[in-house]
Structure formats: C-alpha cells, structure tokens
C-alpha cells in the first residue's frame, strides 16, 4: 500500500490510454487473416481488423467505437435454425459478463444485407488475475 500520502501533493488527473493488453491485442489482430474484434472491459467495441470487415460489411473507421451490444444486435444474430439468440447467450456477452470463453455457431445478416453463417469464439483478457481488461472475439467463417 502507498505510504507517505501528504495532501500538499498536486491532484493527479489520471490520464488513460488503452490498456497495454488491448494495445497489443489490437496489433495482434491487425496482423491476423482471421476476422477478430476487441472490446474493452466496459463492453465498448474498440477495434475490429480488416479481415472482419468482410464479415461485417463495413470498415472499422466508418463504424468507430460503439457499445458491443448495439453493434451485435445490428446483425440480428440467430442460430443456424434461425432462432433468435438473446444477447446474454451471445459468446461476446458471456465473455464480458461471465469472464469465461464461449463458442457458438450463428447466422448473421451483415450491413451489406448478406446472410452469413459464422462461428464465434470469444474469450476474456486478464492483465492480472483480478484485472479484467476486455475481450477478443474471433469469427470463423462456416
């Protein structure tokens, strides 16, 4: 624990760049040919790679950061039998909320209107055992 805390120290405005683990994950994803997205610990979609653009139908630069749930819902995810998948059952939501890996085969409709079958594997990122910093989701084209 910090020791010598004295009130005369100037107040520190905590500046935050993205967590180092997210920075490295983004660089890793940028170099993958497999569609991959990254969300932070608050469920904010912070990046998806070029390979994911072909699944999503739009470039990340066009979409920008946005809540992952909002982004996911826009694809109308459903099972391969066309049964809607509730948000809490989606692999990304499980990885975010329950902080465990999850995998599911899904049918989605991309922004360009194309229906696609994908399998999604999502897993949590921990910088330390008690420091959850976000998730990675990988889309496998079926």
């Amino acid at each position: 624990m910090p020791t010598a805390v004295v009130s005369s120290a100037p107040p520190v405005e905590e500046r935050r760049h993205k967590h180092l683990v997210l920075i490295l994950a983004r660089e890793f994803a940028s170099n993958l040919a497999t569609p991959t997205l990254i969300a932070d610990d608050q469920g904010m979609l912070v990046f998806y790679n070029e390979a994911a653009e072909s699944v999503v139908g739009r470039q990340f630069a066009e979409v920008g950061e946005m809540p992952l749930e909002e982004w996911t819902e826009s694809f109308d995810p459903r099972t391969l039998d066309s049964v809607p998948v509730s948000p809490e059952r989606s692999p990304t939501r499980i990885a975010l909320d329950q902080r465990r890996p999850a995998h599911e085969a899904l049918r989605i409709t991309s922004v360009d209107g194309v229906e696609r079958d994908v399998a999604v594997t999502a897993f949590p990122l921990f910088a330390h055992a008690d420091e959850f910093v976000g998730i990675v989701a990988i889309f496998w084209r079926e």
Partner: peptide, 16 residues
C-alpha cells in the same frame, strides 16, 4: 492508479 509520495504525484503504467 496515481499515488503520492510526499509532494510528488506519481503514476506507473505497464509499457511494451
């Protein structure tokens, strides 16, 4: 997060 040592404010963060 930030912390203080006497009159100094410190911050440490992981780097590459």
């Amino acid at each position: 997060g930030p912390w203080t040592i006497d009159r100094a404010s410190l911050m440490a963060q992981f780097v590459v």
